[in-house]
Computed example of a mutant assay.
Amino acid sequence: MAGSTITVRTDPEIAAQIAFLAQAMDRSRNWVIEEALRQYIQAQSWQLEGIKQAQASLDRGEGIPFEAVMEDMDALIEQTAHTREP
């Protein structure tokens, strides 16, 4: 499969770390960079999808009002404070 070429300027320390990883894993620097990009894109896509789903949930009115959350938190804090008192 033919790939696309992307040029990136990076800090010399990052370049050295990429070279170190490539040598330690017996892989090319290109492989290390592509794997890092793949993992980053996967993580960001997962987070963006979660945000999108949460926003859709709020749009459908499925959220919990802030005041209700704070009331629950206050009750939990008070309950915890009473169970820790001597």
Rank of each mutant, 00 (worst) to 15 (best):
Q55E: 14
S45R: 13
V8G: 00
G3S: 11
E85C: 02
R38Q: 11
E71A: 15
Q42L: 12
S45G: 06
G50W: 04
Q17K: 13
P86M: 07
I18L: 04
I18Q: 02
A22S: 08
Q42N: 10
T7C: 02
L21Q: 13
I6Y: 05
G3N: 10
L76P: 00
W46C: 00
R84A: 14
V69P: 00
Q79S: 14
N30V: 06
R29V: 00
Q79Y: 09
S45V: 08
H82K: 15
W31G: 01
K52H: 13
E85I: 13
L76C: 09
L48W: 09
L58E: 12
I6R: 08
F66I: 12
E85G: 14
A24C: 01
L48S: 09
L48T: 06
Q53F: 01
M70G: 01
R27N: 06
V32A: 01
N30K: 08
V69A: 05
S28N: 01
A68Y: 04
K52E: 11
R38S: 08
K52P: 00
N30F: 06
E62V: 00
E71L: 14
E34A: 10
I64P: 01
G63M: 06
P12Y: 05
A19Q: 08
S45N: 09
G50P: 03
T5S: 05
R9L: 04
I41A: 13
L48P: 02
I33M: 13
T7Y: 05
E85W: 08
Q55A: 05
E78F: 09
S57Q: 12
E62D: 12
L21P: 00
Q55K: 12
M1A: 15
A54I: 00
Q44D: 12
T83G: 04
I41M: 10
I41N: 03
L21Y: 13
I41T: 09
Q53G: 07
T80W: 13
D74T: 14
I14N: 11
Q79V: 06
M70F: 07
R27G: 02
E62N: 13
P12T: 02
S28W: 06
D26A: 11
Y40V: 02
A36T: 10
L37C: 10
V69W: 07
Q39T: 05
A22Y: 07
R38F: 11
A56K: 07
A22K: 05
I6Q: 03
T83Q: 15
T7V: 05
R38L: 08
R9D: 05
M73V: 15
